[in-house]
């Protein structure tokens, strides 16, 4: 047995009231006890641990379970262990599929958007519009770009600029907010498990990040998978019904989809010349189209946002979206 693991087990036995301890998995560290499987987390960053303790205390509520820290026999939420701190958590195994559980997910995310709030993080982003413009000008100076990629990039430049401007404008409206919805950076399907017909949320141990951005990317990634697209539509509808989309959440999620990151990534990848042309352009097309579909979907649901013109995509901006979509489809 790994000596470190032996020490962990010994510390667990000494500090928590477990009688039986067997290692069920080493990575991640899962311990089989007489009270079920427990997840052991090691923390090197004490400040992050305190932040997570505080975060879980804010988030805990009666509607869903959270992977809170077990208290030791002395009533402490962690055990000091060499240069680490060690915490013990529940580790339910059954994932809570999004499909057919959209209502439960939406209720959870809505609750979370009200309780998981703190000072905004990661707000010092460079303006998207400047980024798009600078990158395009930079690419123009180089003559070694793949002609196919350059064709796509230059055809979408105008749309990318419009979208970047819209993303900047939407974000700017909430630039000076005091508190923001936060989600762990690694939020995914695996973060939610099913336990006694209740959702179990694994907050994990990653840094808190802008929740709307994380959620928008989560929805986008899922929507890109053909079999999950419908489920995402239902989730957005349920979120709207539950009241998740206040002005701030709607604006920031739309901003994430408006932001032409895929255009920037495609151009950066081709400038570096390390991505196969076929694959990168294909990914770009799918992401670009999916984002537009999601923006339309959100607006069709009737979500009120701070978009110029608001409501369904119409007028110059709506046409711009339609054109860019048609162009690539």
């Amino acid at each position: 047995m790994n000596p470190d693991l032996a020490a962990v087990l010994s510390a667990l036995q000494a500090n928590y009231g477990f009688r039986q301890l067997n290692v069920a998995c080493e990575q991640p560290l899962l311990i089989d006890t007489e009270r079920g499987i427990k997840r052991i987390r090691l923390w090197t960053d004490e400040a992050l641990l305190h932040l997570h303790l505080k975060w879980r205390n804010h988030v805990k509520n009666e509607h869903f379970f959270v992977d809170r820290m077990y208290v030791t026999r002395a009533g402490l939420p962690s055990v000091r262990f060499g240069n680490f701190s060690m915490t013990c958590h529940d580790a339910p195994m059954e994932p809570l599929a999004l499909n057919n559980n959209e209502q439960q997910w939406a209720a959870f995310l809505t609750d979370l958007s009200r309780t998981s709030r703190d000072q905004p993080v990661d707000e010092s982003k460079t303006e998207m519009q400047i980024q798009v413009h600078t990158l395009f000008e930079q690419a123009k100076q180089m003559h070694e770009l793949d002609p196919e990629i350059w064709g796509i990039v230059s055809a979408c430049y105008s749309s990318a600029c419009t979208r970047a401007a819209e993303a900047d404008r939407l974000r700017e409206q909430h630039q000076y907010r005091r508190s923001a919805f936060l989600l762990p950076a690694d939020f995914s399907h695996d973060s939610c498990k099913a336990l006694f017909d209740t959702l179990f949320f694994e907050l994990g141990q990653s840094e808190p990040t802008d929740g709307c951005g994380v959620l928008a990317r989560f929805v986008l990634t899922d929507a890109l998978q053909a079999q999950r697209g419908q489920s995402m539509g239902k989730l957005l509808q349920e979120l709207a019904l539950k009241g998740f989309f206040d002005r701030e959440n709607a604006d920031l999620m739309l901003a994430e989809w408006f932001a032409p990151d895929e255009w920037i990534r495609l151009l950066q990848a081709s400038l570096q010349g390390d991505v196969p042309v076929d694959r990168s352009s294909d990914v770009f097309r799918r992401v670009w189209d999916q984002k537009i579909k999601l923006i339309r979907l959100l607006e069709n649901i009737g979500v009120q946002s701070g978009r110029a013109g608001g409501g369904a995509p119409s007028g110059s901006e709506g046409q711009q979206l339609d054109q860019s979509n048609t162009l690539l489809l």
């Binding site: 009666e62 820290m69 077990y70 208290v71």
Partner: peptide
């Protein structure tokens, strides 16, 4: 009795 998380009381609505 305290819960495994150290709470004395569990609030449900």
């Amino acid at each position: 009795l305290p819960t495994k998380y150290g709470d004395l009381i569990i609030r449900d609505r």
